[in-house]
């Protein structure tokens, strides 16, 4: 019986290092947006390329009029340890958000608008999803001036080509 051995491809030399992270931001709750920003910024600090692709509700994080009003979710978030009924009361989200923002400022984590500026200055590319923009009736002018461009999903995947590229969904 012939046993087929996998043939090593001499061209596929990889050092196994992460070279590029492509992060899809699909939600605009404050903690999700911060998680994606910190991952992107942390990548640049290690010399890793980083790109952010904002889709669906994630678009709020790069919407000029909305980006500074993102909230922590107090409902449907068991880690908040607030009963669902209480979490839905008026003012609860605002209170949780303001508490979290205070804690973050202590750690030198910037507000969303400043964080976006830092990311762009650090070389992070910011993209918006075309389909989601159509869905929410958004124009390019509604989004931050530092936007690199508007992409389809296919365009985004094409940017991830190459050894050492990783995709993340947040």
């Amino acid at each position: 019986m012939e046993v087929l051995q996998p043939v090593a491809n001499p061209k596929a030399k990889s050092d196994g290092k992460v070279k590029k992270v492509m992060i899809i931001v699909s939600k605009a709750t404050l903690h999700n947006v911060y998680a994606s920003f910190i991952l992107a910024n942390g990548a640049r600090m290690e010399g890793i390329e980083a790109e952010l692709f904002f889709t669906f509700f994630g678009l709020e994080a790069i919407n000029k009029k909305k980006l500074n009003d993102l909230h922590v979710a107090t409902v449907g978030n068991p880690a908040m340890h607030i009963p669902t009924l209480l979490g839905g009361l008026p003012g609860m989200e605002a209170m949780a958000t303001s508490m979290m923002k205070k804690e973050m400022e202590k750690l030198d984590i910037p507000p969303i608008d400043e964080f976006l500026e830092i990311l762009v200055a650090s070389g992070v590319k910011i993209w918006a999803c075309k389909l989601a923009m159509d869905m929410f009736h958004l124009e390019k002018e509604d989004l931050i001036d530092d936007l690199e461009g508007v992409l389809t999903v296919g365009d985004f995947y094409n940017r991830a080509h190459g050894e050492g590229s990783h995709l993340m969904f947040i």
Partner: peptide, 29 residues
């Protein structure tokens, strides 16, 4: 004072873009 990219950017010595240009690929480290 603990160092962050943000604090270096606000130092008045260099901005963040300049910091990355001076020490490419991982400026703070």
């Amino acid at each position: 004072v603990p160092l962050t990219i943000r604090s270096v950017g606000k130092s008045g010595v260099v901005d963040i873009k300049g910091f990355y240009a001076l020490f490419p690929e991982g400026p703070l480290k």
